[in-house]
Design a protein around this nucleic acid. Sequence first.
DNA 1: CTACTTGCAAATGCTTTGCAGGAGA
DNA 2: TCTCCTGCAAAGCATTTGCAAGTAG
Lengths: 147, 147
Amino acid sequence: MVTALSDVHAIVEQRCRDADLMYTKGRRELIEILVRAERPVTIPELLELRPKLTQSSMYRNMADLESVGVVQKVVGADERTRFEPAEELIGHHHHRICEVCGEVADFELSASVERDLDQALSDALVGSGFSIRSHRLDVVGRCRACR
Amino acid sequence: MVTALSDVHAIVEQRCRDADLMYTKGRRELIEILVRAERPVTIPELLELRPKLTQSSMYRNMADLESVGVVQKVVGADERTRFEPAEELIGHHHHRICEVCGEVADFELSASVERDLDQALSDALVGSGFSIRSHRLDVVGRCRACR
DNA sequence: CTACTTGCAAATGCTTTGCAGGAGA
DNA sequence: TCTCCTGCAAAGCATTTGCAAGTAG
């Protein structure tokens, strides 16, 4: 999925409006950084990339944007919390996590693989009483730089 | 995979010996609790189940056992860190994570599904310079109690 | 004006560490 | 005895929160 930045902003703006949140300049910038990054980003990284907001505002904005469903947390190999645009904005994807440096990058699988996977998961959980909302599939290994 | 508790202890004992760690009574109990739980367990839960060790020893033991490869950390829906025996001890498996209460439970997929999945992942990452060590596949949804 | 945001600093809460006493080989 | 382990308390860190000032509508 390739959503134009202008479309992303339109969606986020609407979601914010629905929740009585202002889509401030700071929040727009955060969204742009996350979309452009094409990988989950940590708060420290955001602070370096956009020193106009304080750390606390950063955390608050991430929580707000997550609560309206346009941003989501990602936990990788290290304990650092990373953030990325929700799948609604950038599409369903997976992560490859470097177990050495902790870096996280996105990748996608074909629709047919996703379909087979969802089928296998729902088959595996029939009778468990668990209702599936989504799956998370990451690969763990070593990135090019850390091999 | 069903590894008898005695076998588990034998493996862990050997790993500890190799690393000049003592396989103390406290550590044996921790391993037993983790194996019996059949799901990842948090430190607070461990403290309730086995109040003989202090919190700091708990953390230290988990770190030690993780460093010798017999225990691994699991991050679920909430931020709580959970621990489980390494896959070498209890076999490859996946987690179903309740997005409401944060509970994590184990489940398994058939060997053929795992094989197809590994193939799809390695196909998806050819040329990326990333070397895959393992995959992590979890389902997120609602458990029976939280529906 | 009124409500939502921000910065700053203090407070949390989980996890780690220093140190002295305790236990196993 | 020598080394590793444990408990206790203090320290670290990432994240959260209270409060007063700032700003958009």
